[in-house]
């Protein structure tokens, strides 16, 4: 099973994770007593990258309406910041003594923290992006709940006008998300749900139209028409709720599938 639950996060962290584990192996193999190269330039590049990431992250947590992001992002950024400080200290120490053991320890620790910190930053950000899609799914559920009170063509037209843009946004966003997921089962479930929602939407509208037509004529069979409409509405809501559930799963939720 993949460790990272999106391809984006995987492509960012996997190469550095490999490097960090190799560094740890070298260290565990006894350091070989080699001298450390001059690390001033590469450490400066890392520090600069940390400064830029922290800047973007702080701006994001300041401007967002997402309270969880606002709360979690600064902590994640602090970890990256601390990691950069460790690396700067390590570079200074190793410049004075290229065989310095504390310098080597700080380098390993700093690199690990960069990896963990960047991972946390990306996860906090990713969860926030998922919450945006979930919010749209919930909005769609709210619109669907109105279906049962639509009793004339004018209201049906308005209903379609309200539902269509949000439904189309949800399907596009979920499809985009699905493509980015590394977890095969999550991908399959989301794809299936989106297809179901797309299929059911026009059938639901059609059932609402039939209900309205019967209601405006002799009313014969109106109960069955309402039942059919409610069934379709319920099916669409089930699919949307399943989308919400699976969107919030990560690869760490494997037990769910056992």
């Amino acid at each position: 099973m993949p460790v990272f639950h999106t391809k984006t996060i995987e492509s960012i962290l996997e190469p550095v994770a490999q490097q960090v584990s190799r560094l740890v192996i070298i260290h565990e193999e006894g350091e070989a007593g080699h001298e450390m190269p001059d690390l001033e330039r590469p450490v400066f590049a890392v520090s600069k990258a940390v400064t830029n990431l922290v800047k973007v992250g702080r701006e994001m947590s300041t401007s967002t309406d997402d309270l969880i992001l606002k709360q979690d992002m600064p902590q994640a950024l602090n970890k990256v910041d601390e990691a950069a400080r460790l690396l700067v200290e390590a570079a200074k120490l190793s410049k004075i003594d290229p065989l310095s053991k504390p310098a080597r320890m700080k380098l390993i620790e700093g690199s690990r923290w960069i990896l963990q910190g960047t991972s946390n930053v990306l996860l906090v950000f990713d969860e926030s992006e998922v919450r945006k899609i979930v919010q749209d799914c919930k909005k769609t559920l709210d619109y669907l709940s109105v279906a049962e009170v639509v009793e004339n063509m004018e209201d049906l037209v308005q209903f379609v006008r309200d539902l269509s843009p949000i439904l189309s946004r949800v399907t596009v966003e979920v499809c985009k998300r699905t493509e980015d997921l590394t977890h095969q089962i999550h991908r399959e479930v989301l794809n299936r749900c989106v297809e179901q929602v797309k299929t059911l939407a026009p059938i639901l509208i059609c059932s609402m139209k039939i209900f309205i037509q019967i209601l405006s004529q002799d009313g014969k069979g109106v109960e069955e028409a309402a039942e059919n409409r409610n069934y379709l509405c319920g099916r669409m809501s089930e699919e949307l709720n399943e989308i919400i559930r699976v969107l919030q799963l990560t690869t760490y939720d494997e037990d769910e599938w056992d």
Binding site: V16, P42, N52, V56, T118
Partner: peptide
């Protein structure tokens, strides 16, 4: 914005990997 966050995280990860490569380069030489 969101894509900028991903871009900056990628730059940081790359520069960290390059730093470690520099250290490893000496160790493995």
């Amino acid at each position: 914005d969101s894509s900028e966050m991903v871009r900056q995280a990628r730059i940081l990860a790359q520069s960290t990997a390059e730093l470690i490569q520099a250290i490893r380069g000496e160790a493995e030489a």
